[in-house]
């Protein structure tokens, strides 16, 4: 029982203090590993890799993975499932509570001039931050480097450019095709990735 409470509590803390998206939980997961010895740094590297390569928010994936693995090692697969669920609930609970409170506040002050003025600035910031995240995915996905600081090591892989150009044309300019669901483009790209072995640099 104490194991489940501890899992819940550790992830509750990570959910409360990790600000700015899923990858912000990684330092907390390292801390948990050091403190409890539930898993090693190598295990964590694998868990991050799996979380990135499966659907779903990365932070949530990592919580489920760590919770399942830890409980399963100590008590078997059935309890592993319970551990995964409790860790995930722990991770999301603080943000659900906080967002419900903020949403109540926003609703109350929807017509307030100051709130609207702040939102006018916030939206520009929001789009800028999303653009910046988009640029960093371009560096990882198309140039094979982790950030703009490593541009000297960038590899130009023409397959990535061709695929990007193809999707851009299809999603912006081809009538009917551009209205197709985004998941179809994602699935097609996965197939193209497999056919052309895109994870292996040229």
């Amino acid at each position: 029982m104490t194991l489940y409470l501890k899992l819940f509590w550790e992830f509750f803390k990570a959910g409360l203090f990790a600000i700015g998206g899923g990858m912000a939980t990684v330092p907390f997961l390292q801390e948990i590993s050091r403190k409890t010895g539930w898993y090693t740094a190598g295990d964590l590297a694998d868990m991050i890799a799996v979380s990135e390569s499966t659907p779903g928010p990365i932070g949530v994936n990592m919580a489920t993975y760590v919770g399942y693995t830890t409980a399963q090692r100590q008590a078997g697969p059935v309890f592993g499932i319970l551990g995964g669920i409790l860790s995930t609930v722990g991770l999301v609970m603080p943000s659900v509570i906080i967002i419900l409170i903020i949403a109540r506040f926003l609703e109350k002050f929807r017509e307030n001039r100051y709130v609207n003025a702040a939102m006018y600035g916030l939206r520009a910031a929001s789009v800028a931050l999303i653009s910046s995240a988009g640029i960093s995915i371009v560096f990882i996905a198309v140039f094979g480097v982790n950030s703009i600081d490593e541009w000297r090591q960038a590899v130009i892989d023409y397959r990535c450019f061709l695929l990007a150009a193809l999707i851009l044309i299809l999603t912006r300019w081809v009538p009917k095709v551009r209205d197709m669901h985004p998941i179809l483009f994602i699935i097609a790209s996965a197939v193209i990735g497999i056919v052309f072995h895109m994870s292996v640099p040229l």
Partner: peptide
């Protein structure tokens, strides 16, 4: 995560997600 096909598929998906996020932005 070390399965070849998973890595290949992900490399394709990443490129696609870039373009989709660009459109969304």
């Amino acid at each position: 995560a070390h399965i070849r096909a998973v890595q290949d598929a992900l490399a394709g998906i990443r490129v696609c997600v870039c373009v989709l996020v660009f459109n969304a932005v």
